[in-house]
């Protein structure tokens, strides 16, 4: 596996890994790792370094909705123009082009139900390429970005074993 891929896999697993730590893990020079990361960021292969947070635990009752959006594709730009337009709204966390019954899956976040419905009815549904929207509210999260929300499993191994 290439060094580039190894670095990306490690950072995807834990963005806190420092170049120094990765250098030791991969048997490379620290400067080489730092240069690679800088390049990957510059080329926007690495887009950012987010923490995965269980907001519920600090009493935040924000709301997430998944909105199925049917749109009219446009000549020459297809779905890209409208998708990029939807991306710009800060309420929108993710946008995917889908196969199947609808075209775009849009994940929207807001502080409450009202904020999301206002956004959908006033901003999203009113775009002229948008034909229809179907909104599904998230009731409970179990797993996100590879992390299970339940309590972390403890190390059940014996402290010392042969």
């Amino acid at each position: 596996m290439s060094l580039e891929r190894r670095i990306l896999e490690l950072l995807e697993r834990d963005a806190r890994y420092t170049p120094q730590r990765m250098a030791a893990m991969l048997g490379e020079e620290e400067s080489r790792i730092a240069e690679e990361i800088a390049r990957l960021e510059k080329e926007r292969i690495i887009l950012g370094h987010n923490a995965v947070i269980n907001w519920e635990k600090i009493g935040d009752d924000g709301v997430t909705a998944m909105v199925d959006v049917k749109v009219t594709p446009e000549r020459e730009v297809g779905f890209d123009a409208i998708a990029n337009r939807i991306c710009r709204f800060p309420e929108v966390r993710a946008v995917y082009l889908m196969s199947g019954l609808y075209d775009l899956s849009v994940i929207v976040q807001g502080k409450d139900l009202k904020e999301i419905s206002t956004f959908i009815s006033q901003k999203l549904a009113t775009l002229h390429q948008v034909q229809s929207t179907t909104t599904h509210f998230v009731l409970k999260r179990y797993k996100q970005d590879g992390f299970i929300f339940d309590e972390k499993e403890s190390d059940r191994r014996l402290v010392v074993s042969p």
């Binding site: 191994r157 402290v159 010392v160 042969p162």
Partner: peptide, 13 residues
């Protein structure tokens, strides 16, 4: 070791 709290173990097999 097992009688002790908060041990970081590199002793497992």
């Amino acid at each position: 070791a097992s009688g002790m709290e908060g041990v970081i173990s590199l002793g497992v097999g």
